Simulated assay, not measured.
Amino acid sequence: MTPLNAAFAAQAAHCSALGSPFMARLMTILSEKLAPETSPMMAKLYAWPGDVGPAGASIPLRLAGGLHALVLRGIAPELEAVYPPHEVADSTLWAAVFAALQGHDTWLTDWMKSAPQTNEIRRAAVVRAAGQWAAARFGLPLHLLELGASAGLNLHWDAYGLEAQNVRFGPLGAPVELAPDWRGALPPNAEPIVMARRGVDLAPPNLHAADDRLRLLAYLWPDQPERLTRTRAAMALPPAHVDAGDAADWIEAQLDLPAPAATRLIFHTIAWQYFPAPVQHRARIAIEAAGEKATAADPLIWFAMEADGSEAPGACLTLRCWPGNETYAAGRACFHGRWVDWALPSPT
């Protein structure tokens, strides 16, 4: 099996674990059927340098996103007829995909130039919980700083409702309701007040541009329509400000500004792992240096939801808090936010 075919097989396992039978099936079929001669684009993909798998260029997700984009644009009826909610045999699905690969080769080749780009709105559940913890701990408004913010949809976490163990947090009539399978402790019942929000991304999507909106939606999986509905609702909010730039350069500049009379909440969700090691190092140094200068009048919190290489399911949740440089293991969460195992004790 070639590295590219193996990458599709690996992605199939990830999709199955994240509750998408259709994507698991599609990735499996592609792992078995694709070859360099499938289409001119596929010949280029088989020559792609470096890691083509989920930890590298994510070629399987790029291709899946491109195929889904064709469906969402309504320009590939052969795919629309076999994508969810339709149920067809594997041979029928492959025949339609093969036809799309050949018939839309130029369009897909252009699509594949950009890395996957999406906001998983359900990750906002743990950020909201961290924000409620910050509000309870310090009683100050929040100044939000997100690294790897994509289009900034999760910078609006305070506008979303959260239901955990039949307890609801957040504004009434929220445009987005989050209801993960919540295990462990509940977050403190303290409603945060956000005074400012800003993020950074290497290539933030422009929510006013139809092509960028399509790219965000296309990377959501076709048999999970509730994710499409949730993301469209989040897109309807006024866009948060997301700067284009390097995460380390940006956080250094943000933390060099005068500290606000607020809790600065720096956060990132499934983004840190994609930063090059030098960027991670510089960002960590900048955050820790700012933390050492934090006071009770302008505290600093660093909250992360990231893969940690553990055999335990999901992503690791960590929270560091200054002044005092306290570190908390906050639990774990599904990479797509379907469940949360919250372990952060309420502040005393």
Score class of each variant (00 low, 15 high):
Lys113Ser: 01
Ala179Gly: 00
Met112Pro: 00
Ala129His: 12
Val176Pro: 02
Trp157Gly: 07
Gly170Trp: 09
Tyr160Phe: 15
Leu162Gly: 07
Ala151Phe: 04
Asp110Gln: 11
Ala136Tyr: 11
Ala174Met: 11
Trp111Gln: 01
Arg137Tyr: 05
Ala100Leu: 03
Asp105Tyr: 08
Ala135Asp: 01
Pro187Val: 13
Gln102Lys: 15
Ala159Ile: 04
Gly170Lys: 10
Pro116Thr: 06
Trp107Gly: 01
Gly184Asp: 09
Gly152Cys: 07
Ala159Val: 07
Ser150Tyr: 06
Phe98Pro: 00
Pro171Leu: 08
Ala151His: 01
Pro175Arg: 14
His104Trp: 10
Trp157Ser: 06
Lys113His: 05
Ala164Asn: 10
Ala115Asn: 10
Leu172Cys: 05
Gly173Met: 06
Leu145Tyr: 08
Phe138Tyr: 15
Leu144Tyr: 07
Asn154Leu: 04
Asn154Trp: 10
Ala185Lys: 15
Pro180Met: 10
Leu101Trp: 04
Gly184Met: 10
Gly161Thr: 05
Gly131Leu: 06
Ala185Glu: 11
Ala151Pro: 02
Leu186Ile: 12
Gly173Ser: 13
Gly131Arg: 09
Gln132Glu: 12
Pro180Ser: 07
Ser114Val: 02
Thr109Arg: 09
Ala130Gln: 04
Pro171Trp: 05
Arg168Tyr: 02
Leu140Lys: 14
Asn154Ile: 11
Val176Thr: 07
Leu172Arg: 15
Leu108Phe: 04
Gly184Glu: 12
Ala129Thr: 08
Trp133Glu: 06
Ala99Glu: 14
Ala185Asn: 03
Ala129Lys: 12
Leu144Met: 00
Gly131Asp: 00
Leu155Asn: 07
Pro175Glu: 10
Gly148Pro: 04
Arg183Lys: 14
Leu108Tyr: 06
Arg183Cys: 13
Arg123Ser: 09
Val176Cys: 05
Ala99Met: 12
Ile121Trp: 10
Gly173Glu: 05
Pro187Met: 13
Trp182Ser: 05
Gly148Asp: 09
Asp158Met: 01
Pro175Gln: 11
Val167Asn: 09
